[in-house]
Measured scan of single mutants.
Amino acid sequence: RGFLEKAAVKKMAKAIMADPNKADEVYKKWADKGYTLTQMSNFLKSKTAGKYDRVYNGYVIHLD
């Protein structure tokens, strides 16, 4: 289950990176699912340092 969630989160993160207008909708879905910042950090780990920082930081702001 965790692997599928991670894959889904990364897919949506890539969608945000391609079209930032989708961010609020995606952040709301993640918040509704109760994803914590720790979970998001783990889901968005990448071999490329900083690749998903913008998405993660946007989610931090959304939760605030």
Rank of each mutant, 00 (worst) to 15 (best):
M12G: 10
N57F: 11
A7L: 15
M40V: 14
Y56T: 03
A18P: 00
M40N: 00
H62M: 06
L63F: 04
V9D: 02
L37V: 08
A23R: 05
L44F: 03
D19K: 05
D19E: 07
M40P: 00
Y27K: 00
G50L: 05
K45G: 07
E25F: 10
R1E: 15
K14Q: 09
F3K: 15
L37C: 06
M12V: 04
D53I: 05
A7P: 04
I61P: 01
A15Y: 07
K14C: 13
L4M: 07
R54M: 11
S46H: 10
K45S: 10
E5H: 10
K45Y: 11
K22L: 13
Y52E: 01
T48P: 14
V9T: 03
G50R: 07
Y52T: 01
M17G: 02
V9P: 02
M12T: 04
P20L: 06
S41A: 14
G50M: 05
M40I: 13
K14N: 11
K29A: 11
A15H: 06
M17V: 07
E5C: 12
S46T: 08
K45L: 13
F3A: 13
Q39T: 08
I61T: 11
K33M: 11
D64E: 14
K22A: 08
F43T: 03
S41C: 14
A18C: 14
L63M: 06
R54S: 15
K51Y: 14
N57Y: 13
K47N: 13
S41P: 01
Y27D: 00
L44Q: 00
A18Y: 08
Q39M: 11
E5V: 10
M40R: 01
T38G: 11
A18S: 13
F43M: 13
T36S: 09
G58R: 02
K45F: 09
K11N: 10
P20T: 05
L4D: 06
T38A: 13
D53M: 07
A15V: 09
A23D: 02
L4K: 14
L63D: 02
G2A: 10
D24W: 09
D32V: 09
N42D: 14
R54K: 14
L63P: 00
H62T: 03
R1G: 15
Y35H: 03
K29F: 09
K33L: 12
D32E: 12
N42A: 12
N21E: 13
Y35S: 00
F43N: 02
I61H: 11
A8K: 13
M17K: 04
M17E: 04
A23K: 05
A7Q: 14
G34W: 03
V26Q: 05
V9Y: 02
A49L: 10
Y52I: 02
A18W: 04
L37E: 06
K11P: 01
L44M: 02
Y56A: 01
L37N: 04
A13I: 03
K29N: 10
R1V: 15
A23N: 02
L44H: 00
T38N: 09
M17C: 09
F3G: 14
G50K: 06
T36R: 02
Y52K: 01
K14P: 00
A7K: 15
T36F: 02
A8V: 09
A31V: 07
K11Y: 07
D32Q: 15
V60G: 09
I16D: 00
G2Q: 10
K47I: 06
T38H: 12
N57M: 12
D53W: 07
E5T: 09
R1P: 15
L37D: 05
Y35W: 05
A49E: 13
D64C: 15
D64M: 13
K51H: 06
M12S: 07
Y35L: 09
K45C: 15
L44W: 01
K22Q: 09
H62V: 04
A23E: 04
V9M: 03
K51M: 11
K10V: 14
K28F: 04
Y35I: 06
A8E: 15
M40W: 05
F43A: 06
S46I: 07
P20G: 07
K33Y: 06
A31F: 10
I16C: 05
M17R: 03
V55Q: 03
A49D: 14
P20Y: 09
I61V: 10
V26H: 03
D53L: 08
I16Q: 02
K47L: 04
A7W: 15
K51I: 10
G58T: 02
M12P: 01
K28C: 07
Q39S: 04
A15N: 07
E25N: 06
L37G: 04
G2P: 15
K6A: 15
K6P: 05
M12W: 10
D24Q: 12
D24G: 11
T48G: 08
K33P: 00
W30N: 00
K6R: 14
K28I: 08
D64F: 12
S41H: 13
N21I: 09
I61F: 07
N57K: 14
Y52W: 07
R54Q: 11
A15E: 13
R54F: 14
K6G: 10
K47C: 14
F3Y: 15
H62E: 02
V26A: 08
S46C: 13
A49S: 11
Y27C: 02
Q39C: 07
G58Y: 02
K28S: 09
F3T: 12
L4I: 12
D64L: 15
S41V: 12
N57V: 11
K47H: 11
I16G: 00
Y52G: 01
K14I: 07
K6N: 05
E5G: 09
T38D: 15
T38S: 12
K45R: 11
K45H: 07
W30G: 01
D64I: 14
K11Q: 10
K6T: 11
K33N: 09
A18D: 14
G34E: 04
N42M: 13
L63N: 02
Y59C: 01
D32S: 11
Y56G: 02
G2L: 14
K10F: 09
A13H: 00
T48E: 12
H62S: 04
A49F: 08
P20K: 04
A15S: 12
N42G: 10
K47E: 11
K29D: 07
D19Y: 07
K14A: 11
K29Q: 12
K10T: 10
A13S: 03
K28N: 06
M40E: 00
V26D: 01
S41M: 10
A15L: 11
M17Y: 04
A31Y: 11
G2I: 09
Y59I: 02
E25D: 12
E5Q: 08
K6Q: 13
K10R: 14
D53T: 11
K11A: 09
D32P: 01
F3P: 15
E5K: 06
Y56W: 05
K45V: 06
D24H: 11
V26W: 02
Y35Q: 00
G50T: 06
D53V: 07
S46R: 05
Q39Y: 03
A13G: 02
K33R: 12
A8S: 11
K29W: 09
D19W: 06
D24R: 09
L4F: 09
L63W: 05
H62L: 04
D32Y: 08
L44I: 03
Y59L: 00
K22W: 05
M40C: 02
H62G: 02
T48A: 07
V26L: 04
N21P: 06
N21K: 13
D19T: 04
F43I: 10
V55M: 02
M17H: 03
G34L: 04
A8H: 13
K28Y: 04
A8G: 13
G2T: 06
K29R: 13
Y27F: 08
S41K: 13
Y59K: 01
L44C: 02
K22E: 06
Y59P: 00
F43C: 06
N57Q: 14
K47Q: 09
D24V: 10
A13T: 02
K33Q: 11
M12C: 15
D19Q: 07
G58L: 03
K33A: 15
A18F: 08
K22M: 14
D32W: 07
I16V: 11
A13C: 05
V60C: 13
L4E: 11
D64H: 11
Y59W: 03
M17I: 11
K29I: 09
M12E: 15
Y56N: 01
A23I: 03
A49P: 15
S46L: 05
V55N: 00
N42R: 13
A8Y: 14
K22P: 01
G2S: 08
T48R: 10
D64V: 13
Q39N: 04
S41E: 09
A31E: 07
L37R: 08
A7R: 14
I61N: 15
L63C: 06
I61E: 12
S46G: 08
D24N: 12
F43S: 03
D19H: 13
S46K: 05
F3M: 05
P20E: 06
A49M: 11
Y35N: 00
S46N: 05
S46D: 15
L4P: 05
E25V: 09
V26T: 09
A49R: 09
V60Y: 06
D24K: 15
G50P: 04
Y27L: 01
I61M: 11
L4V: 11
A31M: 09
V60K: 13
N57G: 09
F43P: 00
V60Q: 12
K51D: 05
K29C: 14
K28V: 06
K33H: 09
G2W: 15
R1H: 15
